[in-house]
Design a protein around this nucleic acid. Structure first.
Lengths: 141, 141
DNA sequence: GGAATACTTGACTATTTTAGTCAAGTTTAT
DNA sequence: ATAAACTTGACTAAAATAGTCAAGTATTCC
């Protein structure tokens, strides 16, 4: 399974962004400073988020990024998808002779990983950016 | 998150083993052939499983491994633990200035990863080796 | 219109992890 | 005694990760 800091950073940055949504664009520089994430790395991440239409960029002075949809409508699944964090738990041995083709000759544990994958995706499908922000509402930044 | 083929192999091998439990020890060579896993790699994995008392070794000719507990009592959590597959989703930035110490100043997404971890562990805690074998009962090997 | 701010893109890389291999044993049944 | 099988530890090629670096382009504000 793949779930690394690129995904975490994306979620952290968007949670940060969501707090200012509808007020003004947030610059990556600000996010970088607040969340302690390298600016260059954030640029990579936001480039992907923009392509998947999760955020919009606002150019020029006082520019930055804003959410392209309501925080409530952005599920964590969408975010992970955008930055190529696949919640693929494990693929069965590729091209194995003994192997698993997913159809007639499933490997012993094939169904298990399928179930797990559903289990995890289910979790991410339910959580929205809004949920994150709300659960941190009382915090100081 | 870490969930790689070492964990998958461990589960596959033990599922294979579980089918012959109480009949006779199963040699790693047989498992290697049936499951298409390198013998040397299996040895590494079983060394860990033995140390965590999930399997017992039987030395000598006709030797091999047997389960140390009933298949029903071996949860997937136990297996992953044994082979060092941590279901640690993500740790928050280590020693960050802005960072998350897990206590007073939790990072924005800290609770999220906690929840996810529980969600996944919950899944693995419920699944036993026996469940796996049973759900594959009709298969030919 | 020019400076400053901020987004945009693409190439590059050190480090770490993964998934093994290789070598040299020890133990035990027959 | 010999072969089967477990046991241990060191080593490594390849891939993935987590970035950095460089060179832009676009826009706003003064």
């Amino acid at each position: 399974m793949k779930l690394t800091s690129k995904g975490r950073y994306a979620v952290m940055a968007l949670a940060d962004l969501a707090r200012f949504d509808n007020i003004s664009p947030v610059s990556l520089r600000d996010i970088s400073l607040r969340q302690g994430i390298s600016l260059d790395y954030l640029e990579q991440i936001f480039s992907k988020l923009r392509k998947k239409e999760i955020v919009q960029s606002v150019r020029g002075t006082q520019g930055g990024y804003i959410l392209n949809r309501k925080a409530r409508e952005i599920k964590l699944t969408n975010i992970f998808d955008a930055v190529d964090e696949k919640v693929k738990t494990l693929q069965c041995k590729k091209e194995s002779k003994k192997g698993c083709n997913g159809k007639s000759t499933k490997c012993l544990t094939h169904n298990l990983w399928d179930e797990l994958e559903n289990h995890i995706n289910n979790f991410f499908d339910k959580k929205s950016l809004d949920d994150l922000v709300k659960s941190n509402f009382e915090r100081k930044f």
